[in-house]
């Protein structure tokens, strides 16, 4: 049972990745239509909220790190916000923020921004409790077999750097990851979101905090 479930999860995962490489080629052409000046102005705008070099910032709510995120994942999320498939139910103001940001962006600009942020590599923001990091590493590497939770590295990469539709977790803000995993079913209803739903649901509060602390320090 456990094995079957994990295997089907992985199949979805592999399918999603295979799909992503095909979609990539057509986007590359779209990036051509953006001037360096317009791109820089937009980057400065995004970094106003997402922090210098897009390393993340803690405003009224956590504003996630974008640096190093796979191009495809950034594009997926922007689409999710604009189509109202990704919503921040606990704090409606936070949803509107990224809807407003995203709906004026052309596909070419989205691709150029995603490529730009993917190539940045600032040091992690830090600040998570250090004493739970070791417990978090164990969850990341081995999962929680008793709760049917697979190892995170299987999909997010052994180094947590992500790939295609699988987001990078390395260096992500601790409070942001905790909020996402705690509220998963309420806030995220995008095409790929149901892959994570049983995993987020299977983790206890202290397991969520531990794994979030571990990945938040990874470079």
């Amino acid at each position: 049972m456990k094995v079957v479930r994990l295997r089907s999860l992985l199949q979805i995962a592999v399918l999603a990745v295979a799909f992503s490489t095909a979609a990539r080629a057509s986007d590359e052409k779209a990036a051509a239509g953006v001037s360096q000046r317009d791109l820089q102005a937009k980057v400065d705008y995004c970094e106003t909220c997402h922090g210098l070099s897009a390393r993340g910032f803690i405003g009224f709510h956590p504003i996630p790190r974008l640096a190093g995120q796979p191009v495809e994942y950034i594009e997926n999320e922007l689409k999710g916000f604009v189509e109202h498939k990704r919503e921040n139910k606990e704090s409606p103001s936070s949803t509107n923020i990224m809807f407003n940001v995203g709906h004026v962006l052309s596909p070419a600009m989205i691709h150029a921004l995603a490529t730009h942020f993917h190539d940045l590599n600032p040091k992690p923001f830090g600040g998570a409790p250090k004493e739970i990091v070791a417990a978090g590493k164990k969850i990341f590497d081995d999962g929680v077999p008793s709760a049917d939770v697979p190892a995170c590295g299987t999909c997010h990469g052994a180094d947590a750097k992500g790939n295609g539709a699988f987001p990078r977790l390395a260096g992500q803000l601790y409070p942001y990851i905790v909020t996402q995993l705690t509220n998963w079913a309420k806030e995220r209803a995008e095409e790929n979101s149901n892959i994570m739903a049983p995993i987020a649901h299977g983790l206890t509060k202290s397991q969520i905090e531990a794994v979030a602390a571990y990945v938040s320090y990874l470079e």
Partner: peptide
């Protein structure tokens, strides 16, 4: 304050200063 002016790259203040 609430929405910013995304076309002019002006940020929504609410993201940091709160609702």
């Amino acid at each position: 304050y609430q929405d910013g002016i995304p076309d002019s790259n002006i940020v929504a203040c609410i993201a940091c200063h709160g609702p």
